[in-house]
Design a protein around this nucleic acid. Structure first.
Lengths: 124, 124
DNA sequence: ATTTATGCAAAGTGTTTGCATGTCT
DNA sequence: AGACATGCAAACACTTTGCATAAAT
């Protein structure tokens, strides 16, 4: 029953995400890992991203565009540029995140707050 | 240059969204509007959803799943059930939304806060 | 030896687009 | 008449899956 086995490809994907501070798409991770691992396939990257996310080792960021990934699981707050669609970290004191945009060098035109969990019907 | 013209299909899509308080996918809007408008196509629904959103008449809600739509533009806070993927409204005093989950009958296991706008590179 | 992981290509899903026809002003 | 909107089907982008082979335990 699916014991997690060691794989160089998975290591490479995780290392890549942990080494960078942008929020790459699956394709961008693929291109980056490919440099040290020319034979890796995009499907393997997708499989391992999903696996690593379910292990809680990385974060998937859902945007209107392609999904993006974050190797740093401690920061849950992000900023998406409507133009280039990049995702940036926003340093936030999570106890007081209502005041966060002060030291930020972009223009914030809106935000969305999403809660995840189980609704009253599904929680049982 | 693209003067907005009247169309019964567009009216039907907007009316449907304004009459309901769930957050349907494009397909769900399509199925619903189809009842009173058997000849409508899914492509037309997609085109009109996009149009209505750009007019600010409806809201698009991006989730990990299919996009969902909201005919009530005043409420920006939502809750997604991880199981059924439905989106529910969460009544929030937007001046103090840190305290919102109190009267909620589901289980909240996480949340995500997303800001939209232009980054320092794109804002010019 | 057994079972998981990989690479490739094919299939899948949700959404968008080209084009001829229909509809609005 | 002229421009926008529609319906259909084909195209699209992103992601997932089936299968045979390779690697890990």
């Amino acid at each position: 029953m699916a014991t997690l086995r060691h794989s160089n490809q998975r290591d490479a994907v995780l290392k890549d995400l942990q080494a960078r501070y942008d929020h790459p798409t699956a394709e961008e991770v693929y291109l980056s890992v490919k440099k040290d691992f020319p034979s890796i396939s995009l499907a393997t990257v997708y499989r391992n991203l999903k696996l690593l996310e379910s292990e809680g080792l990385i974060l998937k960021i859902t945007t209107g565009d392609s999904d993006r990934f974050d190797g740093h699981t401690h920061n849950h707050y992000h900023f998406t540029c409507n133009q280039c669609m990049k995702v940036l970290d926003v340093d936030v004191d999570s106890a007081d995140f209502c005041t966060l945009p002060k030291d930020f060098d972009g223009v914030i035109t809106g935000h969305s707050l999403m809660f995840f969990g189980l609704c009253s019907k599904c929680k049982n």
